[in-house]
Design a protein around this nucleic acid. Structure first.
Lengths: 244, 244
DNA sequence: CTAACATGTTAGTCTATCCTAATATTATAG
DNA sequence: CTATAATATTAGGATAGACTAACATGTTAG
């Protein structure tokens, strides 16, 4: 399928027969994918907020992307990626996450700094480079924050995880993924050893959105619910059972 | 010296208090540096040709770069980098060559493919990334084609080398550097083992721009003068002496 | 020293991407 | 079921970067 399907509108100036998306276009597709988990209709404002743009800018861009067959768009009704758009988004996400992993594993980048660097490199790196990076560090399946890396074929694990804030008192869980875009928060989580792979137990939750008390690797600590909401976990089978 | 000096023109719209050069601007500065070897006045047409643009486009851009203090410009008279422009150019050249070296050493990129990849990455990679790459492969001083890498402080070996085409018959020499931007030519040179570091002897030069006969590592071969002109060499002390 | 050629610049467009301000649509609270 | 709030879109404009066509300046050959 070399030629992307066109939408009903037909304002095109040059035939978009390509795979030569610009940086901003890749950013839009990625944002739309990440907000909509791939196949839900997404609101203009949410895209604008995620990209740090005005809603007006998003309206304009989204109209053009629709004429290029990357998404379907009904005004005032939001936006949904087409299959072509979805593939492009996943390609960019793969690049981003492989680059993050490579920086972390091969160049000892601290985990709070890989995101910004990858944000720029993802638009410049060729597929060949990304694949070589992935091979060099053993084809990782998650990035340093625990986010799943799409395969070369464009498949990604889309499991939705529970957040630590949603976990009931007494439950044990393994940290699966943390939000990746706030370096300061990442440094703080790192200090607390709240990183993908570690196991923890929720000792207690103060009411009215109060702090959550945890035990991690023998240490007791407590964090606020806003932070806990950024930490995705996989509950361990048995309440009160120690991390196996 | 945080504030770049302004030229006579004063059309600026936003204060360029920067270090935030765009990709195209970095390309212009790099091209001007490479054509002028750093401190010679450079012609509009030469810049246009090097960048694959029209002369008209270059005229326009160059005027803007002058208002930003990156180069000095007198219309119809060519262009010369300021100290600020020179530093920016060398920063980009360092990025390019470190990236080429890294791709080659750490990711086993073939030497004919590193240039194009670096051409895109050089605008996206941070100084931190470039420095980590350089450190990871032992602070190389030349790139895979033998071109010198500017230091972090912006100093570069500017030695001008003889080309193989200029070398007299009977002379021995060590290949120092080859032109980097033609992948096909690089593959061919690689097949012939004409790579930086190897020693060779010019056995003969046919007159009227005829082929040049060489011995490299025991093998005899001959190449045309156009190709030989792209190979820079360091003559070895003694004519007829075998490569020591 | 001037005509012809080479080289360089300006004028006027174009596209991509963003913005602000004004307007339109949809959703919601009484 | 309307008035208001929330959301989204259009209108109009800016900037960076590129192009073509027309014009200007320099250089050089007789």
């Amino acid at each position: 399928m070399k030629t992307p399907k066109r939408s009903h509108l037909h304002l095109e100036h040059s035939p978009p027969d390509e795979e030569t998306l610009t940086g901003p276009v890749e950013d839009y597709l990625k944002a739309i994918y990440e907000i909509g988990r791939g196949n839900v209709s997404v609101a203009t404002n949410d895209i604008a907020q995620k990209l740090g743009l005005t809603a007006a800018s998003v309206s304009g861009m989204v109209r053009r992307l629709a004429t290029q067959g990357l998404l379907s768009y009904e005004r005032y009704r939001g936006v949904m990626l087409t299959e072509t758009g979805r593939r492009a988004a996943l390609r960019t996400i793969r690049r981003h996450r492989v680059i993050e992993s490579y920086l972390s594993h091969a160049l000892e980048y601290p985990w709070d700094r890989v995101h910004d660097e990858a944000e720029r490199l993802e638009h410049a790196a060729s597929d060949e480079l990304v694949n070589r990076m992935a091979a060099a560090i053993g084809e990782p399946v998650v990035d340093p924050h625990g986010a799943p890396i799409p395969s070369r074929e464009g498949l990604m694990d889309e499991t939705v995880h529970l957040s630590l804030a949603e976990l009931g008192a007494g439950y044990g869980a393994r940290v699966v993924q943390v939000s990746d875009d706030d370096p300061e928060m990442l440094r703080y989580l790192g200090e607390l050893s709240i990183v993908p792979g570690v196991e923890l137990i929720v000792l207690g939750k103060a009411p009215y959105d109060g702090p959550i008390t945890l035990r991690i690797a023998g240490t007791k600590l407590s964090i606020g619910p806003a932070l806990a909401a950024q930490v995705m976990v996989q509950p361990l089978s048995d309440p009160d059972a120690p991390a196996h």
